[in-house]
């Protein structure tokens, strides 16, 4: 009872405290990268390592600035993000459909899951020649490769999440006379939702990895192209700029997804009486 009254009376101060803590944590996350950049800048200003191999952070930023001023950077970011988005959506949708089927139906699981598991053990880059042969060297083959990458984390988490739903909760559903569809809708899906969200975030992460693979294989635009370009023209600052942008974009999209999923889970929670 004491904890309950605490929840009621201490809600506002606790929220404020939590907000402050979060801000502090956010600052902490930046501390180490900033420190490394600082040391890097100070050391490389004296050119300890030849600067054409390891440019200073400021020259990397300069490279980014130059690219941005010509509008080239926006184009590279846009095309890469678009590829990631398409591939991720394609892979995630396919994984959601297949994962929910194999997670709910034992027969489907016995039929489909072994095949998918064996496909998973194929090194994903092995698909590249086949996709290029089938889909050409332009967008479709790249999107397909990214989709393959995004598929498995989502599929695995969703299936496992559905399988891990507590039998005891399912029994409650059976006791109130739920049919199979009700059970899936009212118990299995909400119970598996946290695992699904984890899978989505994993899938998005892999989509960003696979877009690099796809663009390094052959592209005339995109952040992955900048990597190849930097290597071929011997500009380490361009490579580092691209890497930095990948890190930022990956973190940003993951944060967005996590925020979105929080909304989604919150909606589940606030779903009132009519849900039952």
């Amino acid at each position: 009872m004491t904890t309950l009254t605490n929840v009621v009376t201490d809600r506002a101060p606790r929220r404020r405290l939590r907000g402050r803590l979060r801000a502090f944590r956010g600052a902490r996350a930046l501390a180490l990268p900033l420190l490394i950049l600082l040391i890097w800048q100070v050391v490389q200003a004296r050119a300890v390592v030849p600067t054409n191999l390891l440019p200073t952070p400021s020259s990397v930023l300069e490279t980014i600035g130059t690219l941005a001023s010509t509008g080239e950077l926006a184009e590279h970011i846009a095309i890469t993000s678009w590829r990631v988005l398409q591939g991720f959506l394609l892979g995630a949708v396919a994984a959601t459909v297949l994962g929910s089927i194999t997670g709910v139906s034992r027969t489907a699981r016995e039929l489909i899951d072994p095949l998918l598991q064996s496909l998973r053990s194929i090194p994903s880059l092995a698909w590249v020649p086949l996709f290029i042969l089938w889909l050409g060297i332009y967008e479709p083959s790249k999107v397909a490769l990214i989709a393959v990458g995004a598929f498995f984390p989502v599929y695995l988490s969703l299936t496992q999440g559905l399988l891990d739903v507590d039998r005891k909760l399912v029994e409650v559903g059976r006791m109130v006379g739920f049919n199979r569809l009700d059970l899936v809708r009212c118990i299995l899906i909400p119970a598996a939702l946290p695992a699904y969200v984890t899978g989505l975030r994993g899938g998005l992460g892999l989509a960003w990895m696979f877009v690099v693979a796809a663009e390094v294989m052959g592209a005339s635009k995109g952040l992955g192209f900048l990597l190849v370009d930097g290597q071929q023209t011997g500009r380490a600052s361009l490579i580092l700029a691209s890497i930095l942008l990948f890190a930022l974009l990956g973190k940003l999209t993951d944060g967005l997804l996590s925020l979105l999923s929080q909304r989604l889970l919150q909606w589940q929670d606030s779903h009132s009486l009519q849900a039952a």
């Binding site: 029994e171 006379g177 909400p190």
Partner: peptide, 28 residues
């Protein structure tokens, strides 16, 4: 199969963690 006119109280509460108390009571 389970009949709606029969209630079952389990050893554990078995509440749906994603539902409020009200929604849990309304369950089914």
């Amino acid at each position: 199969k389970p009949e709606p006119s029969v209630g079952f109280i389990f050893q554990e509460p078995r509440l749906m963690p994603w539902l409020t108390v009200e929604q849990n009571v309304a369950f089914g």
